[in-house]
Design a protein around this nucleic acid. Structure first.
Length: 810
RNA sequence: GCCCGGGUGGUGGAAUUGGCAUACACGUGCGACUUAAAAUCGCAUUCCGUAAGGAUUGAGGGUUCGAGUCCCUCCCCGGGCACCA
């Protein structure tokens, strides 16, 4: 009897599977397709830690199971290779990002392959490969053609000492994470995608998806749609309103409280601030604007949110009651949201209430749930739908929800209001002033302005440069690649310059799942036939950290391509599940700085990939995170040793053990369902229970085979070894089908009936299955133990749950 | 503050969705094998109690013959958003 030696058999079978191309996803297969996607990794210099493969292992088990159930599975791996950490690391070690990325990918691939995952490696993709990013650029051009890519001035983090743009991740507590200098905001022209045009569709289409509710909620919350109205407040005696009446527009969801608007607040950056400010207030207002500007991002975050503001001295007219109300400037109003101006209703809004109290502004209660005897205090919270208007002529007594619409309708006739939705979602700033990314395929000509690079000239390849540090003027290092930079304008032919910004890596990853269907296509991002064949994705497994950004961007790009009639579906990921991250033994997130990182190389070396696979699945629910227990893998390793020793002597018994058949039958059903529902932890425990139950039995070759087939998706190497070497099968176990189970064999003839008295368990009886209530009653009542507990008392009620339980109420 | 999750032994976690709480493991204890150790195997392991028995799923209340599971109040932990009008 040989000893179980995982390191020996695992390498052998990995080579065998790769040589035989078992896991190639055949485009022309007659079998039904199944596209299983997982987030492709960012290949960092640190390599894998034991947390990374968890998702791969779970998906591998699932895809092997789906294959065994007769589907053509496309299961793939690729590299999200562009990005800042690689660039920074390259600068640190004095190499080019390209070299660094290549080495990282090599290491990742070696580590990933250790686990025996059933990827179709022929479909491997790499976002930093010109053959890939050619199509990232092409998508950008399509966006540009559609008017969905545009340039605008937006803020970037700027380190005044390093004279460089910083990504958000490089800002720690408001300071540059390199030199510690306080970070400033600097306005720069950048490229944006108009995702806000798709806000409604991105919200409305979520409903039909089979996604975790939390993720749906997070996306909706992020988009942040609210429905309300735009209302115009005429400016009172504006000194500049020569031509006609000027207005301040506000957005509100609570038009029913318009009668209570006792003042109006402008955000500091509102264009009308200076116009509305009276001469006498000019100094105070300017001083305030200066102060606000000085407030850093850090102060905005960490300072207590006590409100500050200043009176402009100007007035507007409340359009519903023609009252003259003062206009203030305050930074509790956000410039970019809504119109950057709000009507303040201190009686019914906490923020306005706080501000009004501080600056002694009038408070007027206008809605209250206790109509007609308004006794509620101001700021009553539970007044939204039940409240009535209490202080207005024609609306008094009307419910809030109704009044809201009526008031808007009324003002609408005078052109002073309209229904309007607002969103928290910003357009997507995709420009990065960095080297290691996809060059934005645009050319700036002094005469013709920005011109797109002609499609035939794609890809615009990243040039090799000497110095990867960002340029001092805030431009990307690409500005130094003079030969690359200077080109002819595609329109006028005069000398022009390329755009030096590169793209956010979220653009690369927003469409990678499309490329897997046709990764080598030179003429299209993927052929129509292949897209139609494989897509949409059947199952997407992804970390919950991607719940908002990545998934929202991918959905957005899919919708744009759908509108361009390049895709036949509106939503790319119909079914989505999260995976929880494995934490360090200390329960904290694994990180170098905490020193709690566990390297998979050593663990696989010590126990074998199959044991590690089983342990990572056994730890707990797939979608939850659990701390890594260094001892945990011991348990699954012991289990595999037991399997090994159990199956190593296959000599046919004279009679088939029927009990073993029954046990295998039940396990087939349960383990199969567990895999299908991604409940791998109970799947593994099911396998352990199975061994516990049949370890002392003598099985037929067929029965051993069934056992191995149940094990095969979880521990593919040991299953293959025992299947081919010990059971002497000629073909791979991974070409077998999942065993069928017999529904009729699932139930035992004898069942254990629990007997409770007043809900407390008193006995368990083995009785025949399917007895009637009367039959059970007579059995139970004649039982000596039960008689003793009853002690002659009368039974008030006899509860019988068939084949399960009785409860005697006395 | 708001919106989601969640709270079960020493630890990770099970629980056919309202029907035997603590499956399966880890750890620990005892035993076997061994000169010894490791490995392996066997037994025990929610708590109190010698036992009979009793208590127990964050706390308290409710519905029910019966609640880890449903309802209400509160406490704690994790995640997301956060002056969003």
């Amino acid at each position: 009897m040989t000893k179980y030696n995982p390191s020996k058999i695992e390498k052998k079978w990995q080579k065998y599977w790769e040589a035989k191309k078992f896991y190639r996803a055949d485009d022309k297969s007659k079998k039904p397709k199944y596209y299983q996607l997982e987030t492709f990794p960012y290949p960092s210099a640190a390599g894998l830690h034991v947390g990374h493969p968890k998702g791969y292992i779970g998906e591998d088990i699932h895809s092997r199971y789906v294959r065994m159930n007769g589907k053509e599975v496309m299961y793939t791996m690729g590299w999200d290779a562009f990005g800042l950490p690689t660039e920074n690391y390259a600068i640190k070690v004095g190499k080019s990002p390209k070299e660094v990325a290549k080495a990282n990918i090599k290491n990742f691939k070696r580590q990933v392959k250790m686990f025996g995952l059933s990827y179709d490696w022929e479909r491997e993709i790499n976002t930093s490969d010109p053959e890939y990013y050619k199509w990232t650029q092409w998508i950008f051009l399509k966006m540009y053609e559609k008017g969905l890519a545009y340039r605008a001035k937006t803020n970037v983090n700027w380190c005044p000492k390093d004279k460089t743009v910083l990504a958000n991740e490089q800002v720690k507590d408001g300071c540059c994470d390199r030199c510690g200098t306080q970070v400033e905001q600097k306005e720069l022209y950048q490229w944006l995608f108009k995702i806000t045009d798709y806000a409604d569709r991105l919200i409305d289409d979520i409903e039909g998806l089979d996604w975790p509710e939390t993720t749906k909620a997070a996306q909706k919350n992020w988009i942040g749609r609210s429905e309300g109205a735009l209302i115009k407040f005429p400016v009172f005696n504006s000194k500049f309103s020569k031509g006609g009446q000027e207005y301040v527009e506000v957005f509100t969801t609570r038009a029913d409280t318009l009668f209570g608007a006792t003042y109006l607040v402008l955000a500091p950056e509102h264009p009308l601030v200076t116009k509305l400010t009276k001469d006498a207030n000019l100094n105070a207002v300017n001083k305030y604007l200066e102060e606000v500007k000085k407030k850093t991002e850090m102060e905005r975050l960490h300072m207590d949110k006590s409100k500050t503001g200043v009176d402009t001295g100007g007035y507007v007219v409340n359009p519903i009651n023609n009252e003259k109300i003062p206009v203030w400037v305050a930074d509790y109003v956000i410039g970019w949201y809504g119109t950057g101006a709000v009507m303040a209703v201190p009686a019914h809004d906490e923020r306005d209430w706080e501000f009004a109290k501080k600056y002694d502004l009038p408070v007027k209660m206008v809605v209250c749930p206790n109509y007609p005897a308004p006794t509620c205090p101001v700021l009553e919270k539970a007044f939204t739908e039940d409240a009535h208007l209490v202080d207005s002529e024609e609306f008094v007594g009307m419910k809030s929800a109704e009044a809201r619409n009526k008031i808007i309708e009324k003002l609408k006739e005078k052109g002073l209001a309209e229904f309007k939705k607002n969103y928290k979602l910003h357009d997507w700033v995709l420009s990065r002033q960095r080297y290691w990314g996809v060059p934005i395929p645009m050319i700036r000509c002094d005469k013709c302005g920005f011109q797109p690079v002609p499609e035939n000239d794609l890809p615009v390849e990243l040039p090799n440069i000497e110095e990867y540090k960002p340029a001092e003027d805030g431009r990307s290092p690409l500005a130094r690649a003079k030969e690359w930079l200077v080109v002819k304008c595609p329109k006028c032919g005069k000398e022009a310059e390329r755009e030096t910004d590169t793209m956010d890596t979220f653009v690369d990853s927003s469409w990678y799942y499309l490329r897997y269907t046709d990764p080598k296509n030179k003429n299209e991002f993927a052929s129509e036939a292949k897209i139609k064949h494989w897509l949409p994705v059947d199952l997407c497994v992804i970390g919950s950290e991607h719940a908002v950004m990545h998934l929202l961007y991918a959905r957005f790009i899919a919708k744009v391509l759908y509108d361009l009639e390049l895709l036949h579906f509106k939503e790319p990921f119909l079914k989505l599940r999260h995976l929880g991250l494995i934490q360090g033994a200390d329960g904290q997130k694994m990180s170098k700085s905490r020193g709690n990182v566990v390297n998979p190389d050593e663990i696989v070396e010590a126990y074998g990939a199959d044991s590690v696979r089983l342990y990572e699945m056994f730890m707990g629910p797939f979608e939850d995170g659990q701390p890594w227990d260094p001892k945990g893998v011991v348990g699954t390793s012991r289990f595999l040793n037991r399997v090994w020793n159990f199956i190593s002597e296959p000599e046919e018994p004279k009679t088939v053990d029927k009990e073993a058949d029954k046990i295998l039958n039940k396990a087939t059903k349960e383990i199969g369902e567990d895999i299908k529902n991604l409940k791998f932890n109970t799947g593994v425990s099911g396998l352990m229970k199975l061994i516990n139950a049949i370890e002392d039995k003598w099985l037929t070759k067929k029965q051993y085979g069934t056992l191995l087939k149940l094990l095969a998706p979880f521990a593919p190497h040991i299953a293959e070894e025992l299947w081919q070497t010990v059971l002497k099968n000629k073909k791979s176990i991974h070409l077998e089908t999942w065993p069928k189970y017999d529904e009729a064999l699932l139930a035992d003839e004898l069942i254990e009936l629990v007997i409770q008295i007043n809900g407390v368990k008193r006995d368990v009886l083995k009785i025949t299955k399917g007895l009637s209530e009367e039959e059970v009653k007579s059995i139970v009542l004649s039982n000596e133990n039960i008689k003793k507990h009853l002690a002659g008392r009368e039974i008030k009620k006899f509860i019988y749950i068939k084949d399960r339980l009785t409860n005697l109420v006395i």
